[in-house]
Computed example of a mutant assay.
Amino acid sequence: MRAWSQLWLLLLAAAASPAQQRPADLAADLRRWSAVVEEGKPFDPNLLPEAWSVGSPDALYSISTAPLKAHLQSGSKDHRAVRAWLELLAASLDDSNPVQWDPSAAEKLSRILARPEFRPPAPPSNWDLWWRALGRSIQAILDRLFAFTGSHPSSIQVFLWVLLIGSSGFLVYLLMRSWRHEQRTGPLSPGRLPELSLNSGAWVAAAHSARRQGDIARSIQCCYWAGVTHLQAAGTLPPHFAHTPREYLRLLSGKHELRAALGVLCTRLEHCWYARATPDDQDLASCLVALKELGCSVD
Rank of each mutant, 00 (worst) to 15 (best):
G169A: 13
T185G: 14
I165L: 13
P187K: 08
M176K: 13
L188K: 06
L164W: 08
P187Q: 09
N199S: 07
A207N: 04
L196V: 07
Y173P: 00
S197Y: 00
L193S: 04
A202P: 01
H181T: 09
S197N: 05
R177P: 03
G166E: 03
L175R: 12
S189M: 13
L196C: 01
S200M: 01
R192H: 11
S168L: 15
V204K: 02
E195V: 04
A205F: 00
L160G: 03
A205Q: 12
G166R: 02
P190V: 11
W179H: 15
W179P: 03
F170W: 13
L163D: 05
G186F: 00
Q183V: 03
P194D: 04
G201N: 11
L196H: 07
V162T: 15
L193N: 05
W161P: 01
G186L: 11
Q183F: 02
R177V: 07
L164N: 09
T185E: 12
S167W: 08
I165V: 14
T185H: 12
A207V: 03
V172Y: 08
V172D: 05
L164V: 11
G166C: 08
L164T: 13
P194H: 05
L174C: 09
V162G: 15
G186D: 07
S200F: 01
L196P: 02
W203H: 06
L175G: 11
L193Q: 10
E182M: 09
L188F: 08
S200N: 01
R192G: 05
I165N: 02
L188E: 10
L174H: 07
H181E: 11
L188Q: 11
N199I: 00
F170P: 02
E195M: 05
R184I: 00
P187G: 13
G169K: 03
A206D: 04
S197D: 07
L198P: 01
A202G: 15
S168H: 05
V172R: 06
A202Q: 08
S178R: 15
I165P: 02
A202L: 04
L171F: 06
H181P: 00
F159G: 09
E195T: 08
S168D: 04
T185R: 13
E182F: 06
S189R: 15
L164C: 14
L175Q: 14
G191I: 14
L160F: 12
S178C: 10
F170R: 07
S189T: 11
W179Y: 15
V204M: 07
L188D: 07
S200G: 01
G166Y: 04
L163Q: 08
F159Y: 11
R180S: 10
